[in-house]
Design a protein around this nucleic acid. Structure first.
Lengths: 118, 118
DNA sequence: GCGATAGGTAACCATTCGGCTACCAATGAC
DNA sequence: GTCATTGGTAGCCGAATGGTTACCTATCGC
């Protein structure tokens, strides 16, 4: 599960928001949630796997902490979406533009899944 | 499917990145992807449902366009995570802080899933 | 009118997700 | 030593994802 998938679940977003104020133990994280503690453990494992949190053993307790650097791909991706390459002044030529580009992409397919966050 | 779930799939992120440059037809969107066109249609329906894209009928074609305003909750949420309420100077009192807050939350559970993006 | 093109829907399938209960290991309190 | 607490794992289950093929409608080009 990557960082995008980690953010897709409301329970995990709640956990992360909770950790944003300070590191917490599992029981404290689970306390107000409407799900069982093992379910919380599962979510925490996914968050670990996604790099969204770090964990420290503290005796019999485990203290989870937010790793803010993990969200860089998300901000980068959304910022990339926000950047608009076509100026508003060209929007009235939209029909022509769409058709021209369609022809180009039909003969020159350069699609790549991996360049999305570039 | 909300906007967070919409971003969880790499195919959908690729579609959105594609639409970031300009509006496109379904065939053009599907062209370089390793999946069938009906699968693309499914993803586009989810993106519509999440409000991430808009669609315009153009004869027998449908032109999808990015709706940049849909990503505000994502940026807001991630920005909220980035804000750190505890200054670094207080981090050496971490243990005490964690235990105090644990006690508080045990007696005063104010967890809410819905306040996460506030 | 007719064939080709665009694109949505239906039905199906395998996998993943998110939840649960039951259980176990390890540590702390006394 | 004994018991309570913490928290992970195992196994199960139902629902949702993400893909496929087959099919249908509608529009465009000629």
């Amino acid at each position: 599960m990557d960082i995008f998938g980690a953010l897709a679940d409301p329970v995990r977003r709640s956990l992360l928001a909770d950790l944003a104020s300070e590191p917490r133990r599992v029981v404290d994280l689970a306390e107000g949630l409407p799900i069982s503690r093992p379910a919380v453990s599962k979510h925490l494992r996914l968050l670990l796997e996604a790099g969204a949190v770090t964990v420290a053993d503290r005796g019999r307790e485990r203290v989870y902490a937010l790793d803010r650097s993990a969200f860089a791909p998300v901000t980068a991706y959304v910022a990339g979406l926000a950047a608009r390459p076509i100026p508003d002044s060209a929007l009235d030529a939209l029909e022509t533009e769409v058709r021209r580009t369609s022809r180009e992409r039909r003969t020159n397919p350069t699609h790549e899944l991996t360049q999305e966050t570039a």
